[in-house]
């Protein structure tokens, strides 16, 4: 009996060691590209390709180049501010829109609700490239092409069809809560603001976080809207524009420095909010 116990313990220990080993290896694989970006951003010599990992000379000049914008063609600070403005506005607007839509579709009953759910499901499945040109001309007709407002508008308009996760969350809040409030004489507006919303922190944070990150990552559509208005670029278009054929080699390290700078705020936000993020995605169906 005792022997068995020891065996069992030893086996458990072996399993644990194995798990640690796998996790360590995986972590290395996952962190390697990130570490490599960071190292590159401090590299002084060479171009885009060097056959070694650790830079031979460390420097801060890549960051300095980015922030001071000596050439006048890559106003990174301005891009950063643009992106911040766009993402904050988009975040507020689209959270509002997504929550409104998902609440209406989850809690309220009206004609055409079910057909609408199906239509909305498939509407977004059309590849977006050609509609981008159409959207560009619609914005141009509204005299908005090339402005930050256009980006905010389009990103937020897209939020109307991304309600599925949030709807799943609202579906789990018991209807009994609404009914008892209604008996107390509350109207639907009051139920929405006083009862449902306070219970929905995780999903609001999740929606907001997703919306906030969008503008930092979109480089194709934003470029079509912005055209040659370099001053109105977001960081994603800006950084991507550094990687053209003729400039990729000479600007590679500056590019990585830019990558580090935009990854920092998003990473911090993400780590800080990950609890809500998980709750937002999972609670919809777990409970």
């Amino acid at each position: 009996m005792a022997k068995k116990e020891i065996n069992y313990k030893a086996q458990k220990k072996r399993t644990k060691l194995l798990v640690y080993a796998i996790l360590t290896i995986m972590s290395v694989v996952w962190l390697f590209p990130i570490v490599w970006i960071v190292l590159n951003s401090f590299r002084e010599e060479g171009g885009a390709f060097v056959p070694y990992i650790i830079p031979k000379h460390f420097t801060l000049s890549n960051y300095a180049k980015l922030i001071t914008d000596a050439s006048g063609n890559y106003p990174f600070v301005r891009w950063f501010v643009n992106t911040l403005i766009v993402s904050v506005c988009t975040c507020v607007l689209s959270t509002f829109i997504t929550i409104s839509m998902s609440y209406a579709l989850s809690r309220l009953r009206f004609k055409l609700r079910r057909p609408f759910l199906k239509v909305a499901l498939v509407l977004n499945m059309f590849p977006a490239f050609m509609s981008m040109i159409a959207i560009y001309y619609i914005l141009k007709a509204l005299n908005l092409a090339g402005s930050l407002l256009a980006l905010i508008l389009v990103y937020s308009a897209g939020a109307a069809l991304t309600f599925y996760v949030a709807k799943g969350f609202f579906d789990t809040i018991p209807m009994a809560l609404d009914e008892s409030a209604m008996i107390d004489g509350a109207n639907k507006w009051q139920i929405f603001t006083k009862i449902t919303l306070p219970l929905s922190k995780p999903i609001i944070v999740y929606t907001a976080l997703t919306a906030f990150m969008g503008p930092w990552m979109d480089f194709i559509f934003a470029k079509i809207i912005m055209g040659d208005d370099v001053k109105n670029y977001t960081v994603a278009i800006g950084l991507y524009s550094m990687m053209t054929q003729t400039t990729a080699n000479s600007l590679f390290m500056t590019f990585t420095a830019g990558c580090v700078l935009i990854a920092i705020p998003i990473t911090l936000l993400f780590i800080y909010m990950q609890k809500y993020y998980v709750e937002g995605v999972t609670s919809g169906a777990v409970k």
Binding site: M101, L108, A159, N187
Partner: peptide, 20 residues
Amino acid sequence: FHQTLMTVPLMGVLFFTILP
């Protein structure tokens, strides 16, 4: 209430999704 909540978003959908 559903009309209040959904009108503005749907306008966006009409112009920026359905039209294109």
